[in-house]
């Protein structure tokens, strides 16, 4: 079933279609939100609010972008809204996304996540959307309502930093 058809069914109140959509997106939105916010509690809120927004607003999808671009745009707005709501000081006290046990040898994946964690938030989200979701710089620029050059610049700096951290 095409994702656009699924959205059309959700707009018509089809709960089975909503379950299907949940299965397709909940984990991905959670990973995105956790990568951005570094808080499981906030990431769950983003999943919930994003999917409820899809349930209530599926009819607002105009079909001018990929469904995933639309959904991650909603998720990003929800995440930014939560970020604004949370005191920055409190957020900075949250543990990093991956806390390696010093007694256990750190894996390559943990090193990569730790390096990702050192990037500024606006670079982390571009890296996630490009490499995990496969969105183009045009998609990301459209979603974030910023110039394409800004997206490419964020990727450029993220890549440089990651190569340096993982050297």
């Amino acid at each position: 079933m095409d994702e656009r058809d699924t959205l059309a069914r959700i707009a018509a109140g089809d709960e089975a279609a909503f379950h299907q959509f949940y299965n397709a997106y909940a984990d991905r939105i959670h990973r995105f939100a956790l990568t951005m916010l570094r808080s499981r509690h906030l990431a769950e809120d983003v999943v919930q609010e994003t999917l409820l927004a899809v349930w209530k607003g599926a009819q607002r999808f105009r079909g001018t972008s990929k469904v995933s671009t639309w959904v991650f745009g909603i998720a990003r707005n929800q995440a930014l809204s939560l970020l604004r709501r949370e005191a920055r000081a409190a957020r900075d006290q949250l543990p990093p996304m991956v806390e390696p046990d010093p007694a256990i040898a750190i894996t390559r994946q943990e090193r990569v996540l730790a390096a990702l964690d050192r990037l500024p938030e606006e670079q982390r989200e571009v890296v996630f959307l490009a490499f995990y979701e496969g969105l183009s710089y045009r998609d990301i620029a459209s979603m974030m309502e910023i110039p394409e050059g800004t997206v490419k610049s964020r990727m450029y700096h993220a890549k440089r930093a990651l190569l340096e951290y993982l050297r």
Binding site: D27, I29, R31, L34, E44, V47, V112
Partner: peptide, 11 residues
């Protein structure tokens, strides 16, 4: 990056 991001917990 793809491998590591895939290990970030899902919902």
């Amino acid at each position: 990056l793809q491998a590591a991001l895939g290990t970030v917990p899902g919902a």
